[in-house]
């Protein structure tokens, strides 16, 4: 990390502290509270913060369904994020290099991100409903076999990924486009003088220069993708069986329909810890990958 030393500690603190304190002030209570709750036996018939020690934690480590859902999430968020990254980068490259009525397309491509996920999920459901949905309606019109969108594991996973990619690729697009717009022009001029092909320029110049911003975008997207909820809730209800259940859904059910507050808190803390470890590792990998080429 290369930073400038402007000697004055006063300014140094005055810049960071207001924001940091504001955030901590809002978040500290819920966080400590959640830790405290995870050590209590708060459930539907017993509201309150008694002390049961590590009981919930022990139970969580033996909850096979929860850990299954963790594994599933790894695959889910990996695939959706990679897909979104590749597509988002392509979109950004296309929009960057100027297209006719650029503005219209840029805004059009941003629209999916602006829709409320929970409501869009219902629209997706009306598309992938097997009997009255648009997808099978089109398949039928084309004389193709209808597909079991929500009751077989592969199509079900596919519909969720489609919904997620549709909704969140614009996120990648916007960040990467902003990144591209802020790149200095010189390296490209140099590449042009060398007579490098567009393909080569991309791999030698554009991509490496975009590495730091890509890493950030991917990490943020992974965080958001791991909270995937609405599309699962609306499209498959975690089915068939529990084949599309992810931790956020699992925890939601413990909270919302079962009101196992203490157990839910424990599960989400475990999830938080795992997420921090995994994301730190990923962050390290990215930092190492983008270093040799950087400044």
């Amino acid at each position: 990390m290369q930073t400038y030393k402007l000697t004055n500690t006063y300014y140094k603190r005055a810049f960071l502290l207001p924001g940091l304190i504001l955030l901590v002030a809002i978040i500290i209570f819920p966080l400590l509270f959640t830790i405290r709750v995870s050590l209590a036996g708060w459930n539907v018939s017993h509201a309150g913060l008694d002390f049961v020690g590590g009981h919930n934690w022990a139970r969580a480590f033996h909850d096979r369904l929860f850990w299954d859902s963790m594994n599933r999430l790894l695959i889910f968020s990996f695939f959706t994020t990679i897909l979104q990254y590749v597509l988002g980068f392509t979109m950004a490259m296309v929009a960057w290099r100027g297209i006719a009525s650029r503005r219209f397309f840029r805004v059009l491509w941003l629209i999916p991100m602006m829709t409320t996920p929970s409501v869009m999920a219902i629209v997706w459901r009306s598309i992938f409903r097997e009997d009255i949905g648009a997808a099978n309606g089109i398949f039928h019109g084309l004389g193709l076999h209808p597909i079991a969108w929500s009751t077989e594991i592969f199509p079900a996973t596919f519909t969720i990924i489609i919904a997620e990619v549709w909704q969140w690729t614009p996120f990648m697009f916007l960040i990467l486009l902003a990144g591209l717009l802020s790149l200095p022009k010189e390296p490209f001029l140099a590449a042009e003088i060398d007579g490098a092909s567009a393909w080569k320029t991309f791999w030698r110049v554009t991509f490496p220069m975009m590495a730091p911003i890509s890493a950030g975008a991917i990490v943020i997207r992974l965080i958001e993708a791991s909270k995937i909820f609405d599309s699962i809730f609306s499209l498959t209800s975690a089915g068939p069986g529990n084949a599309t259940e992810t931790p956020s859904y699992f925890v939601w059910k413990r909270y919302f329909t079962e009101f196992q507050i203490s157990y839910g808190a424990t599960l989400s803390l475990i999830y938080l810890i795992v997420a921090i470890i995994v994301l730190t590792i990923i962050g390290q990998i990215f930092a190492r990958l983008s270093k040799p080429k950087g400044d």
Partner: peptide, 22 residues
């Protein structure tokens, strides 16, 4: 009884697994 939600969602989990052939 208290915990009706918990009992019934456990039941639904099991039934769904059987329906899905798991």
């Amino acid at each position: 009884v208290p915990g009706n939600g918990q009992f019934m969602s456990a039941l639904a989990d099991g039934v769904a697994q059987a329906l899905a052939g798991q």
